[in-house]
């Protein structure tokens, strides 16, 4: 019989589906396989470790003011010097990493969890519901980001929850739109038709077949967006709309540094460099993740 090109050696062929641990191990090794992915994952891991252990890494209390030592240059006591209030910049950058990651990860998770069902329903559901949801998404995304932020800050007061809310409101429409477009293009594909012909229920089609096919691109977009979100948080903080001024965040460091830029550029560099590193890291990581997660792009592995 014409069954061609099959590896019939039972020792080499795997009959069992690999477990999730093994599969994620493969994904990680795939990401490391490309040079950019390696840089990306290293930066991402570094940033996450710093964020988690910020309190232990920071040599000083990031909010402790010491007017005597204001605007000190780099030294062994203050690795990156101090700002105009004499706060240790290195400690502020480290703890700022925690703020940034907390805001980015929680805001993006909330946005993803909200956008997935909305987009799936808009794409797969009836036309009128799609039209209604699109209207809401478009109205939300037509509001200028800064105006939206201002309005919400005025209503709720500045703080991390407010920043998260602004970011969620800002990103849900674009994520939901991506999910909707993907769903629309998938729902006329044969494999969804085949599911319908097999009597599969709508929830089954939505969550077992559309969701796994949609979530890949979405996770990658979210990964690439982490940098945007961090920038956003920094921007809002820079404008004084984000986290409170005493809380260390990269935006606050930038904003404080900006006012003294004529005497020293160090605070601006200290606030900007981690932002750039995070952007590069998460972008590279996201792109490598996209290549690694796509079963068609996954390189053939030799046993």
């Amino acid at each position: 019989m014409a069954v061609i090109g099959i590896d019939t050696n039972p020792l080499q062929s795997q009959t069992r589906e690999p477990g999730w641990l093994r599969r994620s191990g493969r994904v990680v090794s795939d990401i490391f396989h490309t040079p950019l992915g390696g840089i990306g994952i290293t930066l991402v891991v570094l940033i996450l470790v710093v964020a988690v252990f910020a309190q232990w890494i920071a040599p000083y209390n990031p909010t402790a003011i010491s007017v005597k030592e204001r605007l000190a240059g780099p030294s062994f006591t203050h690795l990156l010097g101090t700002d105009q209030l004499g706060r240790d910049l290195f400690s502020r950058v480290i703890v700022g990493t925690q703020t940034a990651m907390m805001v980015a990860i929680s805001a993006l998770s909330i946005a993803l969890v909200a956008a997935l069902p909305l987009g799936l329903i808009a794409g797969y559901g009836p036309r009128w519901l799609d039209a209604a949801l699109i209207l809401v998404f478009d109205s939300l995304s037509s509001l200028p980001m800064i105006m939206l932020g201002l309005a919400i800050v005025v209503l709720l007061g500045p703080g991390i929850p407010t920043v998260i809310l602004v970011i969620v409101l800002y990103s849900v429409p674009s994520y939901a739109r991506l999910v909707r477009t993907q769903t629309l293009s998938l729902k006329s594909r044969d494999f969804i038709k085949a599911e319908q012909a097999m009597n599969a229920s709508t929830p089954r089609i939505l969550f077992n077949h559309l969701l796994p096919n949609v979530i890949g691109p979405l996770l990658i977009l979210a990964c690439l967006d982490i940098s945007t979100v961090i920038t956003l948080e920094a921007g809002l903080s820079f404008l004084g709309l984000g986290v409170k001024p005493q809380v260390p965040s990269w935006g606050n460091i930038l904003s404080d540094g900006f006012s003294v830029i004529r005497s020293t550029a160090l605070p601006v560099i200290a606030g900007g460099a981690p932002l750039i590193l995070a952007t590069i890291g998460f972008t590279f990581f996201g792109e490598a993740l996209r290549d690694a997660l796509d079963p068609k792009l996954a390189r053939e592995r030799k046993p």
Binding site: R189, D190, K193, A194, N213
Partner: peptide
């Protein structure tokens, strides 16, 4: 139903 192109009738994931 057997589709014309069997590969497209399978969920790629």
């Amino acid at each position: 139903l057997l589709f014309q192109d069997p590969v497209t009738s399978f969920d790629p994931r």
